[in-house]
Design a protein around this nucleic acid. Structure first.
Length: 432
RNA sequence: GCAGGGAUUGGGGAGUGGUUAAACCCAGCAGUCUGUAAAACUGCCGCCCUCGGCUUCACAGGUUCGAAUCCUGUUCCCUGCACCA
């Protein structure tokens, strides 16, 4: 399959949930500028944002000029889309902090240096921050009919509920529409992308542009494309993993964990994700599809997916680490490595430090070490796990939670390996 | 402001004086099977020194041999009505 234009490309990858009429003909005919917004509601982007990020990269690849818009100011208000409760406002300083962090992340992932069409990273604070209320109401508010604002799903759903919607959030759609207008004016931005919950906001923006600037000729009209909301085969929202969201911040979600998340994607989902997130072409994906069908236990498709995305987010170095840890944990005899190698390989996993004299003499109860390392919340939990055969010390199953751990249990004199279940490891490192 | 209803273990939601650490569902965790998959099945799912003990049912007091369950006060939430606009 040969994709001529970005629209075709997105289509066969099945990431177009909806798009405005004639969007394709526009994208076929010329290179445009397009944007996708990112909310600074958390200190890190997470893999729910991946589809949008990869989207920007694809547009760039096809010669378009993408803009990543950080909602520094809209984040102060809160988008009611997709929420059924009023949100708590984040403090200004939190938002500032988030904006900075997200900006940095985007800069690392996206190509902002390309000569022809670098990705621009912009903050809507630039035009929203100092806006005058009365001016805004006169210049922008006049174009909005409350009637149609009320009809928006995001608003209607909330009005029907008892909790209602605050004026603040109700106003949100004006701001996002205004963003599109500004970007349209400043950068001739003709396409907004987003999750499917953004459809209403995008259309509102398009309408505002046409009202403010009048009808332009076809080639200059604004458009929108929305991506599907991703769910896995069991209907769960994509990206929710046991133990919290998978973020792209290595301090929160280590490259190893990130890699493992994709490594563990089920056979049913993996091909879909490869299409959505990677650059693999039709042929390559066909091959992987066959492999998943015929020799699923090899997990070739999962490995490709994990490797691809880990590299995108954490770079080749991150991938190397992730693969190293994976090898050590799942194929190797970890305890045969020397402690230095183990630490090296497990650099990113959980490490708890304990002092050597705790182990001297009689030693410490295993159960206490487990709690200390946060592998279990309480001693009760440790006992429970032990009775179910789910806890290990240096890869040996523990039968008695109160077993004493002493210096003789140290691997090569310096570390202890704790394991819970099949996949969770923690290292205890001895400090003086 | 008036009247009524409600706050239970992560979420949902039983429970109206004792046999209730509290039904049931979801989520979660571990195990078996396997392929670090899916499904299925088993066990667990307040804390502890676990055939036992301790602390929990918004908060603070009280009644009682005994309370999540009854009374009083407080806080918060909801639903009507009114007031304001």
């Amino acid at each position: 399959m040969n994709t001529q234009n970005i629209f075709q490309e997105l289509k066969w990858r099945q990431v177009i949930y909806d798009s405005t009429p004639n969007c394709e003909s526009l994208l076929k005919l010329k290179n445009i500028s397009c944007y996708n917004g990112f909310d600074p509601t958390a200190p890190s982007l997470h893999i729910g944002n991946l589809i949008a990020i990869v989207g920007l990269i694809r547009f760039q690849k096809f010669g378009h000029s993408p803009i990543a818009l950080i909602g520094g100011t809209t984040g102060m208000i809160g988008d009611p889309s997709g929420k059924n409760e009023e949100r708590n406002l984040l403090s200004k300083s939190d938002i500032d902090h988030n904006v900075e962090a997200i900006q940095l992340q985007l800069m690392n992932i996206l190509d902002t240096k390309s000569k022809n069409n670098p990705v621009k990273i912009i903050n809507n604070k630039d035009w929203l921050e100092n806006i005058q209320l009365v001016d805004f109401l006169r210049d922008v508010g006049k174009f909005f009919s409350v009637n149609s604002m009320l009809a928006k799903d995001s608003v209607k759903g909330r009005i029907d509920r008892e909790s209602g919607i605050s004026f603040t959030e109700f106003t949100y759609q004006l701001l996002q529409a205004y963003d599109y207008l500004k970007l349209f004016e400043k950068y001739n931005c003709q396409l907004q992308t987003g999750g499917s919950d953004q459809w209403g906001n995008i259309i509102t923006g398009i309408n505002l542009i046409s009202k403010v600037l009048g009808n332009k000729e076809k080639l200059n009209q604004p458009h929108g494309i929305v991506y599907p909301l991703l769910t896995d085969s069991s209907g769960e929202k994509f990206g929710k993993s046991t133990g919290g969201n998978i973020t792209i911040n290595p301090a929160e979600t280590s490259p190893y964990k990130f890699y493992q998340f994709f490594f563990n994607v089920s056979d049913i989902d993996v091909i879909k994700y490869l299409k959505i997130f990677t650059n693999k072409n039709y042929k390559e994906i066909k091959i992987l599809e066959k492999s998943t069908l015929n020799e699923p236990q090899k997990r070739i498709a999962q490995k490709e997916l994990a490797a691809n995305l880990t590299t995108l987010i954490h770079g080749p170095g991150g991938l190397e680490k992730a693969e190293g840890i994976t090898r050590a944990l799942f194929q190797g005899n970890l305890i045969n490595l020397d402690s230095k190698e183990i630490l090296d390989v497990l650099e990113d996993s959980n490490i708890t430090e304990i002092s050597k004299n705790e182990l001297e003499g009689e030693g410490v109860k295993y159960s206490e070490l487990v709690v200390k390392s946060k592998m279990a919340k309480s001693l009760s939990e440790v006992r429970r796990l032990v009775s179910q055969g789910g806890l290990f010390l240096n890869d040996t199953k523990i039968e008695n939670a109160d077993k004493l751990v002493t210096i003789s249990d140290l691997i090569k004199g310096s570390i202890i390996l704790l394991r819970r279940g099949k996949k969770n490891y923690t290292i205890l490192r001895i400090i003086r």
